[in-house]
Design a protein around this nucleic acid. Structure first.
Length: 455
DNA sequence: TCTGGGGTCCTAGGACCC
DNA sequence: TCTGGGGTCCTAGGACCC
């Protein structure tokens, strides 16, 4: 089974904000260089879609609601959904917050089409009851086909692909439907006169390998024949951790570039340590004013989670890069991840320093050796953000500017749009708040064992 | 129209080693 | 006189995915 939540971020916002139900909603970066994460179906009718620059979306749908993503909310909803999946099988493979594969056979809940369909429909009902949101389900004999099924089921549907019908179903579809065929490979194949999956099958494996290379060609050919033996894998270990920022305006000042790289290194290490791991290879990423992107990396003698070590490596790498003309993005990453204990064996013992493994998993606070110039003022109130007013209760920020902030007072449990009020940005009665659960009683991460099996 | 942020996997060349 | 063969590690870049 493949489960894919429908327009997940936008749907969660509509569930949280009654005034946005049935309206065009766009969730994504709201700065001058932002892109759309998710558009509600109403916004898609205007031509807005994921990965589109938000500036372009605003031209297409000027009256849509534009909201910053609220990952804490999406994560808590995601946990509830994943918990329902976990009740079906020990083999659940999340692909992102809103998508997962489930091996139903391994869970012993379905091994034929009829029961699989029943399990899928019951899951969709459980998700709706638990989160208030809809998800689409694909059921098939392999990951690829289950995923194609959920795509065809959207929105709010279920598609089961009967074993034996796979190849005739695939034949007329675009090659772009196959996993691993993106824009570049799609163009490549089209120039060779291949645009449908059926044409890949006709071309033969040798031709595909000639066009795409050994590994890629063989893989794409197998997929075209509906040969996909990839298992559902739960709990995959991450292989790298990285942090990057695109700046609203290009940075020209080399001193500022160094300061940003140091800050990114600290943030990266913060996440590295939060995951209880250490890394051996430090990667610096630079996107220049003209969008040309390069990476420079350095492999250390031993894994580290020391912010100073990562900061210094990143600083060395930066000195290898010409940034005249300005940079629009900087990033710092760590790969070659090892479990934490490894490292204690190496560098740390000689210093007499308390092993970092014992350190509290508190947010990492590091004083940078480079003075960090004051960051451009971050707006205090971001569109979509939850707030609490001493008098008016729970609401969310509709917009702010010119020293004022506009709030709509409504909660996920209201049936009608709430009232709008405007305050001074520094109104002492107004404070930031945590998101409310979308369904009353179904709290964040709250475990209700047996909820799914109870029927 | 002006292009996010977080990842994974693959390729290819050079260094290095046996 | 005409330059082995194979394996691993490191680095850089590109394609792809959500």
């Amino acid at each position: 089974m493949h489960l894919d939540m429908d327009a997940f971020f936008a749907a969660a916002e509509q569930a949280a904000k009654p005034s946005l139900r049935g309206k065009a909603v766009v969730v994504g970066g709201l700065g001058p260089r932002g892109v759309v994460s998710t558009a509600s179906y109403e916004a898609r009718a205007f031509g807005v879609h994921s990965a589109m620059p938000t500036a372009q979306a605003r031209r297409l749908a000027p009256n849509a609601a534009y909201l910053f993503p609220r990952f804490t909310l999406y994560r808590s909803v995601s946990e509830q959904v994943m918990e329902l999946l976990g009740a079906l099988s020990p083999l659940v493979e999340p692909l992102s917050l809103d998508e997962a594969f489930v091996d139903l056979e391994a869970g012993g809940v379905a091994s034929d089409a009829q029961t699989a369909r029943a399990v899928g429909e019951r899951l969709r009902a459980d998700i709706k009851a638990r989160t208030g949101l809809t998800g689409s389900v694909g059921l098939a004999a392999s990951k690829m086909l289950a995923k194609i099924g959920s795509e065809r089921a959207k929105p709010d549907g279920l598609v089961l692909i009967e074993p034996g019908t796979e190849r005739e179903l695939l034949a007329p579809l675009s090659v772009r439907v196959l996993p691993g065929v993106g824009p570049a490979t799609g163009d490549h194949l089209r120039r060779a006169g291949i645009s449908t999956i059926g044409e890949i099958a006709e071309a033969g494996e040798d031709e595909l390998v000639r066009l795409l290379g050994k590994a890629h060609g063989a893989g794409v050919y197998a997929m075209a024949l509906a040969h996909d033996e990839r298992p559902v894998v739960a709990e995959r270990e991450g292989k790298s951790i990285s942090v990057e920022d695109t700046y609203d305006v290009d940075i020209h000042d080399r001193v500022r570039v160094r300061a940003e790289v140091a800050a990114l290194a600290d943030r990266c290490v913060g996440r590295l340590r939060a995951s209880g791991r250490s890394g051996r290879t430090v990667v610096l990423k630079v996107r220049r004013y003209d969008f040309s992107t390069l990476t420079r990396s350095e492999t250390l003698r031993a894994p580290t989670d020391d912010p100073a070590v990562v900061r210094e490596a990143a600083a060395r790498l930066l000195e290898l890069v010409d940034t005249t003309g300005g940079v629009r993005l900087l990033g710092v990453g760590v790969s070659g991840l090892a479990d934490f204990t490894q490292e204690v064996l190496f560098a740390r013992t000689t210093t007499g320093e308390e092993p970092l493994a014992r350190a509290a998993p508190a947010p990492l606070l590091v004083t940078t050796s480079v003075p960090v110039p004051a960051a451009p003022p971050v707006p205090l109130w971001r569109p979509g953000q939850d707030v609490e007013h001493r008098e008016h209760g729970a609401g969310w920020v509709q917009g702010s500017g010119l020293g004022r902030v506009t709030v709509r007072f409504e909660t996920p449990y209201d049936d009608r749009p709430g009232r709008v009020r405007t305050f001074a940005v520094d109104d002492p009665d107004l404070s930031a708040a945590e998101p409310l659960p979308l369904v009353r009683g179904a709290g964040d991460g709250e475990v209700r064992p047996g909820a799914a099996e109870a029927r």
